[in-house]
Design a protein around this nucleic acid. Structure first.
Lengths: 112, 112
DNA sequence: AGAATATTCAACCATTTAGTTGAATGATAA
DNA sequence: TTATCATTCAACTAAATGGTTGAATATTCT
């Protein structure tokens, strides 16, 4: 709430669902139609369509219409924001990492 | 659903909430008690406590008890999984990026 | 025009989430 | 022991999520 980037909300909630992550993985390799995507899951067409709507709102995919088919491709710009966010924490698991010493220090202060 | 990592679910849903991201940012700088954290938000104590429970389940924070206070610190191991996931897509926004040429190519195939 | 194909919309349901309030637990201080 | 402080639990509500089914829309084929 004290934070700048509202986009991270939709990007991270999109990534929180395994079906959506799987869709991203697949359209990253190759542009696919909605039908081609939907066939891979035990879900209804409508359910997959909803997932795609979410991914599109988060700007993680791009949808273009080709005849009666809607072709989906990855639009990785938004992912970059999330990656940048996480990279921010990169130093943390190198420096004061959850290493053995870390836990040993924890132990000490805990006894205090 | 076709996917390996179940942990990514809880990590990404944790990151989807701006309050939780803000908590992470703050405890990354300095270990803080639950009270100290809660004071910064207009939420009730209980609400913040719930956020912390979520972050702990996602293994993004570590909670240790010191007297009657519970001290919270960042536990960045889990974030690494998310970062690794995103790094997977790193090449994408360098190579076939949403650049001008990309859209021009799109235009061509679209006409076909 | 009519049929078939591809996708979305609308209405609904169950579950989860984010919040509240008030009581309960646990630890320290008087 | 009693009071106080720090935190959580329980019960509740409103909204969001992830799913369904069936109708609606848009495009292409005959």
């Amino acid at each position: 709430m004290v934070e700048y980037s509202i986009q991270l909300n939709s990007v991270f909630s999109s990534l929180a669902d395994p079906t959506r992550r799987d869709i991203l993985r697949r359209v990253a390799r190759k542009e696919l139609s909605v039908s081609e995507i939907a066939q891979s899951y035990k879900l209804t067409f409508a359910a997959v369509s909803k997932h795609l709507t979410m991914l599109e709102k988060a700007r993680l995919i791009h949808k273009r219409q080709e005849g009666r088919q809607h072709m989906i491709s990855l639009s990785p710009r938004a992912l970059k924001g999330a990656a940048t966010y996480l990279r921010h924490y990169d130093g943390m698991w190198r420096g004061r990492l959850d290493s053995l010493e870390h836990y040993l220090d924890r132990g000490k202060t805990h006894v205090r």
